[in-house]
């Protein structure tokens, strides 16, 4: 056998593809589920925290900053392991899926809060003043005038950060969540062939390249040069 046949046999083996592609596809479904759940809760929580922070209650803001700092500084895998192996010993048992969703949501919320808050701070004071001068309340001003502008400015950085964090769904493989990587690794050890790993990588590319491209497009589209 020449080297290209060896390569194809090890990495794109038709029999292995045939046997394990369904598992990889099942993994893709799980990855998409994790990703969507994390995006929904993480961004919602981040936005809520940023809105809460704009009330500038000292104790509340200190707590928010602490939360954000900790989740920005800790590797997600470390948090996943603590929650996954730690909670059962205090009587709380969560499935791997729940742990992965919970931890990644908190991580995304921390980053999203920081990005939204930057956006809120970047809105000029005159916007607050104009709205308040027409009799809108603080909350009405926040909801109708400030947040829509702040959120729009944060779309590109938030998209890129969200992609980076949802890709961490692969960490689920370490705690037995049957997502793409876990399926690929299991298939690889059963088949004794690297094809499933390549399939796994391709599965991620299929899922995430469009999102990465979207992020790139948003970056140019929202490059705030509205003149």
């Amino acid at each position: 056998m020449d080297s290209s046949t060896i390569f194809l046999d090890a990495f794109l083996n038709p029999a292995v593809i045939d046997r394990y592609l369904p598992d990889i596809l099942k993994g893709m479904v799980v990855t998409v589920e994790v990703a969507l759940a994390v995006v929904a809760t993480g961004i919602a929580l981040g936005l809520a925290l940023a809105a809460l922070r704009s009330f500038r209650v000292r104790a509340v803001n200190a707590a928010i900053v602490l939360f954000v700092d900790v989740f920005r500084a800790l590797p997600p895998l470390v948090v996943i392991l603590i929650v996954y192996f730690g909670l059962p010993s205090v009587g709380i048992t969560l499935s791997g899926f729940a742990v992965l969703w919970l931890v990644l949501s908190l991580v995304l919320a921390a980053f999203a809060e920081e990005i939204f808050w930057s956006g809120i701070l970047s809105i000029r004071k005159g916007q607050w003043e104009a709205a308040r001068s027409t009799g809108l309340t603080f909350v009405q001003t926040l909801v109708w005038v400030i947040l829509p502008q702040a959120v729009r400015m944060t779309v590109p950085p938030l998209t890129n950060r969200t992609i980076a964090i949802t890709k961490n769904s692969a960490l689920g493989a370490v705690i037995g969540v049957p997502e793409i990587l876990m399926q690929a690794q299991t298939a690889q050890s059963f088949s004794g062939n690297a094809t499933p790993l390549l399939l796994g990588a391709i599965a991620y590319i299929v899922l995430f390249v469009p999102v990465v491209a979207l992020g790139r497009w948003l970056e140019t589209r929202f490059a705030w040069g509205r003149s």
Binding site: I163, K167, N168, S169, A170, L171, A173, I180, L181, A184, Q185, A194, L197, L198, G200, A201, Y204, I205, L207, F208, V209, V211, V212, A213, R216
Partner: peptide, 14 residues
């Protein structure tokens, strides 16, 4: 874009 789409852990294991 390819390497931004693939999770680093997947790349590492590959």
């Amino acid at each position: 874009d390819f390497f931004r789409a693939v999770p680093p852990l997947v790349l590492l294991i590959f």
